[in-house]
């Protein structure tokens, strides 16, 4: 089922304060449309208010991609994003709050372990035992925007792109992707897998960050390509740049993101559920 959401409107009385605008959309893939299946991707975000006129509120974003082969993967992806938001918000409030990128990395490493443990615990309880946990198989990518730090942890094949400054391809940076080699393109790790060592955690400190884009693997093939060294990088004219520019506009209707995901050439290129969740900084 397609989803697009507008996120909270700007509260009155905070004019002049930098803030993040967050918008997302999700669309089930061609095969799911044809068979009447659910979209097995999920996304969610929340924020933690800051009493700091110079900094935007902290934002927590999560996307998840349920494994198509598993019977409760749609439930799994929803459980993953809700668990991530709850655990990370609680963790940040409790540790209020790291400043440096290494401190954020350490916190997110700790919180990622809590997220996975709680996810597995709930899946076991809901599914009725250890054997049912695998039915909830899903990836999860969680990003925390604590300007000027962007931190994330990721299990599976989601990816994270950062915009600095005014954007344009040279100011877009692929900071995380699991598909490091062509041989890995058909493999992924799920929260229900043996995740020890498979969780990618990092935090970046950069005052110039103005946008963050996260996605499940469905859009990887429209966004990423291999460069001359065989390394993944952004395609020549990345659609991410246009998405950021649209979100910069105050009156952009986020349903437009669904229109993008429903384009025939996007469907043809992805053959998968597609999800994007993006944030742009407004000053």
């Amino acid at each position: 089922m397609p989803e697009a959401e507008a996120g909270p409107r700007h509260p009155a009385g905070l004019a002049g304060r930098p803030r993040w605008r967050v918008r997302g959309a999700s669309m089930q893939g061609y095969d799911h449309v044809r068979s009447g299946g659910w979209c097995e991707d999920s996304f969610a975000h929340t924020h933690i208010p800051l009493d700091d006129p110079a900094r935007p509120d902290i934002q927590i974003l999560a996307v998840a991609d349920g494994a198509g082969s598993r019977s409760r993967s749609a439930d799994g992806s929803r459980l993953a994003v809700s668990t991530a938001l709850a655990v990370v918000e609680q963790g940040i409030r409790a540790h209020w709050r790291p400043e440096s990128a290494p401190e954020w990395t350490a916190l997110l490493q700790h919180l990622s372990e809590q997220v996975i443990a709680r996810f597995v615990s709930v899946a076991r309880a809901v599914g009725g035992g250890d054997k049912a946990i695998g039915d909830f198989a899903t990836t999860l990518t969680t990003v925390v925007l604590a300007h000027p730090v962007v931190g994330y942890f990721s299990v599976g094949d989601g990816f994270v792109i950062i915009r600095t400054g005014a954007g344009g391809r040279s100011n877009l940076h692929l900071v995380d992707s699991a598909v490091a080699t062509a041989q890995d393109a058909s493999t992924t790790t799920f929260l229900t897998s043996h995740t020890a060592g498979a969780v990618r955690v990092n935090a970046i400190y950069d005052e110039a960050i103005t946008g963050v884009f996260i996605s499940t693997d469905g859009l990887a093939y429209t966004t990423l390509a291999r460069d001359d060294d065989g390394q993944l990088s952004l395609v020549e004219r990345p659609m991410v740049d246009t998405v950021f520019r649209l979100l910069d506009q105050d009156d952009f209707d986020p349903l437009g993101l669904l229109r993008l995901l429903q384009r025939d050439d996007v469907i043809a290129a992805t053959q998968d559920d597609t999800t994007l969740l993006a944030a742009v900084l407004q000053r």
């Binding site: 990423l224 004219r237 043809a268 290129a269």
Partner: peptide, 11 residues
Amino acid sequence: VIDGISIPPPN
């Protein structure tokens, strides 16, 4: 603008 976004062929 959305309809004009360039989508590369599958890689």
